[in-house]
Design a protein around this nucleic acid. Structure first.
Length: 508
RNA sequence: GCCCCGUUAGCUCAACUGGCAGAGCAACUGACUCUUAAUCAGUAGGUUCGGGGUUCGAUUCCCUGACGGGGCACCA
């Protein structure tokens, strides 16, 4: 950044102070949001007693013409044009106004008028500087909805999200939709008597999903801790404790790659529903998806990655093995494992038939599941927390994942509540770990003990909240619905890293 | 972690086969009391992402590093 551009503005702030104007005052009494001024504009303008309005916002356009000026200010609700005339605001105020720049925060009082060209505006009678920006905003021009020189520096938009939010209406809209999604999810579960809880992020033993964890250290206890990779196990302890409808909406952490649909920390919704099975859960998830889409978008379809996704028709419920058979001709439950292996490029040594089935699904089926689809009855080997399938108890479990647009949005089971079987499953996971599967689950003795006291039959569901937000916001990049997606530090801004290093060194 | 592409003024972008680094907007000075990508006149602004190499000469070619984007792998 050129220092003179900043110094100019610091000098202007100083000149304001010399005029007796505080460039950083304490408060401003607003009477309206911009959108409220624009609503029923003509009726309000026509009223004899139409009192003045007071709005505040950021100056996003500025046209100075000697003794009068036009500007647009933008607040959270929208933007509106101001007409500022020296004879209306007074010579002193007008002088102060001329020291303002694009990006400064301004409060005004005035009355509604339509300008000669018909734009709903405020004729300003009083103005108040609310904050002098000393760093220039990227300059974006706009005419009749068409944007010129749009600020689209990828990366900078994520690093300086506040600029993205100021400059790109689409971005503001995406985060509003995300907020609406979260609210809709809470409302839906609250209405059905689910109790929201909060469980620890730092855990001595991580579990509930297949993933690599972040590891950290507790100095006082002198022991390692893991950031949770799922919400599952604490919530199921609550089933034991008698919360028979319970949910948590919270952040989980997985030490894996970053791409369009993955971020190392993300938001999950998990809920557990005693005395229900995974068929009940499918009914509920289907209804939940429709409700969220309808609430947030007003319709039942979403345009996503060039495809129209329709939530109206019943979501197909198909067995994973049948989908694979359809695409590959393999009978994955009966064909020899060698035949399954040969259909895959390569598979790890520890892979059992169950892992091969999962891999075949990933390679041949998943990407084509564009419309909302429940994929049911996963292999037992990759589902250590799910009940065995009542029809195929040797190889499959009662589990489903919901796919939309070719990516997974949720995962659910008829929850395993037989403590003896659960112990066996954990032992099988430990054996897999021995054979090199470093995502196999870790035996959680404390969880087993809870289950031994009796856990009700239950359905459990996990949903990727960020992905839902992404879907209804119509973007196919997760970082468009993450306010501050993870990125490498910019060059020359890594000083904090060294401090962090010395801190953690004390523990190890 | 691997492969491909990108990085030039505050912003958006140019610059041919390697030959003085440019424009618009923003900034600065001045004019302008209904403009809206405001207009008009003038002024200033560059570590061409960092480091190294080839060359008389590098924004341009080569090597290397940083960051970003896309793809692959891993995963949800």
């Amino acid at each position: 950044m050129r220092p003179d551009l900043i110094q100019n503005r610091i000098d202007k702030a100083e000149r304001l102070r010399e005029m007796g104007v505080n460039p950083y005052p304490y408060r401003f009494e607003r009477t309206h949001q911009v959108s409220e001024v624009l609503a029923n504009f003509d009726e309000e303008e026509a009223k004899e007693d139409s009192s003045s309005v007071a709005v505040a916002g950021r100056i996003v356009s500025l046209r100075l013409m000697g003794k009068a000026a036009f500007a647009h200010v933008q607040d959270a609700s929208g933007k509106i044009q101001l007409y500022i005339k020296r004879d209306d605001v007074g010579t002193e105020s007008y002088k102060a106004f001329k020291l303002l720049d694009l990006g400064d925060l301004l409060g005004v009082r005035g009355t509604r008028i339509r300008t000669r060209t018909g734009e709903a505006s405020i004729a300003v009678t009083e103005l108040e500087v609310l904050s002098k920006a000393i760093r220039p905003l990227p300059v974006v021009k706009e005419k009749e909805g068409e944007v010129f020189d749009a600020w689209k520096d990828t990366g900078a938009r994520y690093r300086r999200r506040y600029l993205d939010l100021i400059l790109n209406p689409d971005s503001r809209e995406a985060f509003r939709k995300r907020s609406a999604v979260v609210r809709a999810l809470r409302d839906y579960l609250d209405e059905r008597d689910f109790v929201e809880v909060e469980t620890p992020v730092l855990q001595a033993i991580y579990g509930g999903a297949m993933a690599r964890p972040f590891e950290t250290y507790h100095n006082a206890l002198d022991m390692p801790f893991f950031m949770r990779i799922a919400l599952e196990l604490p919530l199921k302890r609550l089933l034991v404790g008698g919360f028979d409808r319970v949910y948590e909406l919270g952040r989980v952490f997985r030490n894996e790659g970053v791409d369009r649909s993955h971020n190392p920390e993300f938001t999950m919704l998990e809920f557990y529903w005693a005395y229900a099975d995974y068929h009940d859960a499918m009914d509920l998830v289907e209804d939940l998806c429709r409700t969220v889409v309808k609430t947030v978008t007003g319709g039942m379809t979403v345009e996503w990655d060039g495809k129209t996704i329709d939530f109206e028709p019943a979501f197909p419920r198909v067995r994973m093995v049948d989908l694979i058979a359809e695409k590959t001709g393999l009978d994955v439950l009966k064909d020899p494992e060698e035949k399954l292996r040969s259909k895959l490029g390569e598979a790890p040594d520890f892979a059992t038939r169950g892992h091969l089935i999962e891999e075949l699904f990933d390679q041949y089926v998943q990407g084509d599941l564009v419309q909302p689809t429940f994929v049911m009855d996963h292999p037992l080997a990759i589902s250590p927390l799910a009940k065995v399938n009542r029809h195929e108890p040797e190889l499959l479990v009662e589990r489903f994942e919901i796919f939309i647009g070719g990516i997974e949005f949720g995962n659910a089971f008829s929850e395993l509540n037989d403590p003896v079987d659960q112990r066996r499953r954990f032992e099988e996971q430990a054996a897999q770990r021995e054979r090199g599967n470093d995502e196999a689950q870790v035996l959680d003795e404390d969880y087993l003990e809870a289950m031994e006291y009796g856990m009700p039959p239950a359905a459990g569901v996990g949903l990727g909240v960020d992905r839902l937000a992404m879907l209804v916001a119509g973007t196919h990049a997760l970082r468009d619905v993450l306010l501050f997606p993870h990125m490498r530090p910019e060059e020359g801004r890594g000083a904090e890293d060294e401090v962090a290093d010395t801190d953690t060194d004390t523990g190890h």
